[in-house]
Design a protein around this nucleic acid. Structure first.
Lengths: 194, 194
DNA sequence: CGTCTATTTGAATGTACTCAAAAGCGGTGG
DNA sequence: CCACCGCTTTTGAGTACATTCAAATAGACG
């Protein structure tokens, strides 16, 4: 368990001094999850954010009919949390569950707040990360508004090639906002197209 | 034209010294738009971000069929830009157009970069703003995945009461991801429900 | 090989869209 | 003042995209 993957990730955005690095490292926790374990559970306060170093998670919402709607998948070198709950420290609306055995570097809410004061550059780091995440979220929204299910699937397939391998189809369907049966029909339709 | 509305807005997130305020003010521009004018046009680089002090804008995408998909409305005390274009300084995918006469306080990309170095607190300011914006964007995504058109409209009506007054229905339909005809049918349906 | 889960297939249904036409609603000018 | 124009909203019929439910197949794993 070491902080190296996070430090390498951070250098893509900002550079830290050795001292800053060791302060940061002193405030990290490391944790392993089994397939199926929850990192965040609806109703609980999300007390830490998780930077994944291996594995895969899904973040999803359970609607009033008990149906699951997947908002995002996270893998290595990406963050996984209920951001709304984390920043407000109020109960989470969403769930984060491991769909593979997963390893994470975690920062508790309290430590994150301390770190922002100890290392002001981290405000810049997360400002930049959030800028990109927001752009990605807006682009996804527009795709959901403007593309048909088939087009959304083809985009997903192309954009997230590696995900198609490791994620069950019924979860991809949920992410795309369609039923598993309809995704299956879309796939057979695509085969006929060729 | 003064910077007061922006300064008041900022105090909700961070506090600036008098000196920091005057640096900030020196880097702002003020601009008025007529109804129908574009603040950002698809294909152009978005060279500034706009903080609205009056009026209303829509941010939208034009799809391959020439259809318009509204991503957001912005009013007083909110930002309006193509964030993806602004942070990358690459051509915009989206358009921002005034649907009312609109006044904005603007910060150019160059000035924003300078300001981040001159006033490190601004990294924190925008980190916090972006956190909230991302949460809002994710919540909207989930509503689009999990609610029917009627439910989305009822949510919009309740959440954005003031918008219903000032924004034409066909634009609200676009924002909700449905056709204007169908929104009209939903409304008559809701009247029957009562 | 059997069991459990995931995927596919088909028929019937529902939600939302398209197209066309009519009705409503301002604003402007004669 | 009202008649006309352009734009927005409504209504209706027919259609398309996507869902539901049920059953059959296929895959994965012990």
């Amino acid at each position: 368990m070491d902080a190296e993957p996070l430090l390498i990730y951070i250098t893509k955005f900002i550079s830290l001094t050795d001292e800053e690095e060791s302060i940061l490292i002193s405030r990290l926790n490391f944790r392993k999850y089994l397939k199926g374990q929850y990192i965040v559970q609806h109703g609980d306060v999300c007390r830490f954010s998780s930077f994944l170093t291996s594995g895969c998670t899904k973040t999803f919402y359970i609607d009033h009919d008990g149906q699951e709607h997947i908002m995002m998948f996270s893998i290595k070198d990406w963050w996984s949390s209920d951001l709304g709950s984390f920043i407000s420290q109020l109960p989470a609306n969403y769930n984060v569950q491991c769909i593979e055995p997963t390893e994470a570097i975690q920062i508790s809410y309290e430590n994150q707040q301390k770190l922002y004061d100890e290392i002001p550059k981290l405000d810049r780091l997360f400002r930049k990360i959030l800028e990109r995440a927001l752009v990605a979220s807006q682009n996804r929204l527009v795709r959901n508004l403007s593309l048909t299910a088939k087009e959304r699937y083809l985009f997903f397939k192309e954009q997230y090639t590696s995900f198609e391998q490791r994620i069950p189809q019924y979860m991809i369907a949920s992410y795309l906002g369609i039923t598993k049966e309809f995704l299956s029909k879309i796939k057979s339709q695509i085969i006929l197209d060729q």
